[in-house]
Amino acid sequence: MNAQPELTQALLYLDGVSVSFDGFRALNNLSLVIGPGEMRAIIGPNGAGKTTMMDIVTGKTRPDEGDVLFDGRVDLTRLDEASIAELGIGRKFQKPTVFESQTVEDNLLLALKGPRSAAASLFGWRNRVKASELDGVLETVGLAEHRARLAADLSHGQKQWLEIGMLLAQDPKLLLVDEPVAGMTDAETEETARLLTRIAGNHAVVVVEHDMAFVRALGCKVTCLHEGTVLAEGPIDAVSANERVIEVYLGR
C-alpha cells in the first residue's frame, strides 16, 4: 500500500483523512506530510480541524476514512494513545496540562524515557533514570532553579515550558504542540520560539498557532487549514499573500 519511496521518507503521512461528528465534517480529505526533523506551523480559523488532526495522530479520535502512517510503516489508526506515545509522538495540549500536585522534577521524571508498565514502576525503575538527562531537559526549558517547586505554583508560561520539557524528556521523533504561546507575554513568546527552533532538527515539530508574529519567528514551512482540508502550504510569505488565506483567516 505504501510502496512509493517518498512515503518511507516521511515521518508523518496523512492521506485522504476524513472524520465527522454528528454530520459535521471536522476533517475533509486532509493530506499532510511531515519529514523527519522538520518544523511545521499549522494555522487556520477556529473549527478548521487543527486540534482534530492532532487527536487523530495521537490516537484519541479514529478517522472515518484515510491513512495515517508514522515512520512510513506504522498505521496509527489502529493504536491507542499509550502505544503511539511509545512510538515517539509527544503532544502538548492547548491548555497547559502538567501534574500540578507534584514537583517540576517529578513531572519530568514521569516523562523521561524508560519502562512504562505498572510492574516496572512498582519495583523501582526510577533509580535507573539518568540524572544527567533530567538536568539537560531542565536546562533546555529554563526551569533548573524551579526543580523542587510544585508544578501548581508555576506561572502560566512556566507551565507551558514544563510541558514542552516533558515532551523533550520523552525524546520523541515528533512533537505536536498546540498553541504554545496562548496567554504568554511577548518576552515569553520570543523565548518559546527560540526553544522550539532549538528543539527542531533533533525532533520533528508541528506547531498549531494563531499568533502570526510567533509563526513568523519560527521561520518554517506553514500549512493553512480551512474546513478540514489544506487551503495553502509553503513559506510564510507565500501563504500569507494567498488570496483565499487572507479571505478566510487573516483578514484584510
Binding site: 461528528f21 454528528d22 471536522a26 486540534t51 482534530t52 484519541k60 479520535t61 492547548q94 491548555k95
Partner: peptide
C-alpha cells in the same frame, strides 16, 4: 450520546 471533538 452527542459525539463531538475530543476534549482535553
Amino acid at each position: 450520546a452527542q459525539k463531538g471533538r475530543a476534549v482535553e
